[in-house]
Design a protein around this nucleic acid. Sequence first.
DNA 1: GCTATGCTTCGAACCGGTTCGAATGACGAT
DNA 2: ATCGTCATTCGAACCGGTTCGAAGCATAGC
Lengths: 340, 340
Amino acid sequence: MVNIGDVARAAGVARSTASYALSGKRSVSDEVRRRVAEVAAELGYTPNAGARALATSRAMVIGLLAQFLPDEFAPAMLQYIQGVANTARDLGYDILLSSDPDGPAALKRLTDSRMVDGVVLLNVAEHDERLPVLRAAPQPGALVGLPGDCTGVDVFDLDFEEAGRAMVEHLAGLGHRELLLVSQPEHVIERGGAYVWRLQNAALETAAVRGVHLRVVHGSSSQPDIGRDLHALLDAHPETTGLLLNNEAAAAALPTVMHERRLTAPADLSVIGRYSDEFARTFSLPFSSIESAPDRLGRMAVRQLVRRIEKELTDDAPHVVRFVAPELVDRGSTAPPPAR
Amino acid sequence: MVNIGDVARAAGVARSTASYALSGKRSVSDEVRRRVAEVAAELGYTPNAGARALATSRAMVIGLLAQFLPDEFAPAMLQYIQGVANTARDLGYDILLSSDPDGPAALKRLTDSRMVDGVVLLNVAEHDERLPVLRAAPQPGALVGLPGDCTGVDVFDLDFEEAGRAMVEHLAGLGHRELLLVSQPEHVIERGGAYVWRLQNAALETAAVRGVHLRVVHGSSSQPDIGRDLHALLDAHPETTGLLLNNEAAAAALPTVMHERRLTAPADLSVIGRYSDEFARTFSLPFSSIESAPDRLGRMAVRQLVRRIEKELTDDAPHVVRFVAPELVDRGSTAPPPAR
DNA sequence: GCTATGCTTCGAACCGGTTCGAATGACGAT
DNA sequence: ATCGTCATTCGAACCGGTTCGAAGCATAGC
């Protein structure tokens, strides 16, 4: 493999000169710069990443910690990964993907070994065990998801409170009085999935203010269980005229369930979900929804992270907690409730 | 950050001794080994990955080249990624994920810079432009997907020919005479998606042998277009009693389409697909299918790759082309055709 | 004519590991 | 007492980059 010494020799200059010629960090005569560039291209020189990382203490790699939990709906996760990966590449960074179920251990290894210059954590929980590890690490970190304690990290998340309010307001405004919110399974909340109750509490509060009845139920997050759950729920609560979904699996299963029950939206039932447009396309979901913007969140997280890595932000620059405003994508699945 | 020099000093030995004590590559007195291990744990020593990679020319990283093409169904891709990531982790390797649309350039950079010890290519095309780059690289590579030329790489793929035969045999055996195969869009074939025509040709051949009529059609690979396509196809070919799917998007969309047409499987139409069990669960697909085993393929690819990296296989050990035998998962969506 | 200045270039040190050859010392055999 | 053997440890070199200080040299200024 050709190294910078080979290039320097072939160009008839010192190694350091070749380095400066290629990096441009010091001025070099045009003649030499040209010759070095030429020789480098000719020999097919590519700098050794390990050596460069050692010398500069910059790996040009961002760690991406994603956990594929059995009770998470994997396709929803993929979009965050794509958002992060694409943005990182655009900014010149590679991404090291960890799917290790032992998040804290994986994070510690990645940061301590200096394999990564910074870290993006997906699917952050209220009391996320990875956070103490991240705070102790010398590299900066950006989160997608809101933990209880945001000190020392940059945080990006959908404004789930506002999402809950918007969903209820929308249906209440159309005249609905009996709403059903299908939420994530209870153990997702127990594990610290704060977004679940953030949306849920705001929805309940808004319902109280508007004087409408909102019942919260938990559904399974996997097929085919969620389909059975939905049938059971609709059986148990026939008075429901508006359905709110904060559970991707439920959204994916609902069209089939509604067909089976010979229900159509919005004639028989108004439905509003919370998922991304991409997700809606993938699953052919005909329901209006609050856009969860995974690509945007991934992009924001990486951009901020890179700013910190490259010290555009001083170390003590205040950390941000930024919420994406929910946007309602109207797919025509809501209308005033049917006359009784 | 604490380095091996700090550990050595604190333990009162030379750097080299500390290194040997930790790696066990030479014998060291029990006393010293114990003390070094103790001190290392106490100081929280983690070896610097760049330095180690430089010294050993081993990065302990595997490159994963996945392309998220607009005409590929992303959720199907995710399962390969998970399979590769999990197996790599189990074998002690990290995964560097590249989603760069310019595959050859990304591959060249990853290999030439020695960031990775080997590479897994997903979604390999008949004349894949990444292959010449991979063959020129010093690292070994494993493919998921069968290219025209397999020299110099290990190849793993589903036996799509056998899959095509099995699907047709199954339906012909039940008495179907009019079959419709929904394939990928034509530009997937043009781009070199060999698996499409491998399955298709074998299916046509088998149909000819069995004397049944098989029509091949191409469907869009994204929602909602594929739904419209399916409706149009069923309108145009009402004689069809058996449907074969080699298009994930079509499989995902079919339940809705069938509901809309008030068709049920297998009473009105027998359906058989080609996708993974995981995929079937995610999309609540009620159709029998040929298992595409993405996790197994990912695992096989990584295991073989690691064997090559670690020189358990000599450099000139013959490369393998291994096909996974298709397995029919019966979900009860096929039966003899309805009496006319 | 001599020094100050600026542009190029070079050599050496450094990042943090691993690995090779050799030095040291204890011990048993002759 | 001497030599050889073995286990243990050390020092130095090396991997391939980057970066600092200084040297070389031509030109301008006095």
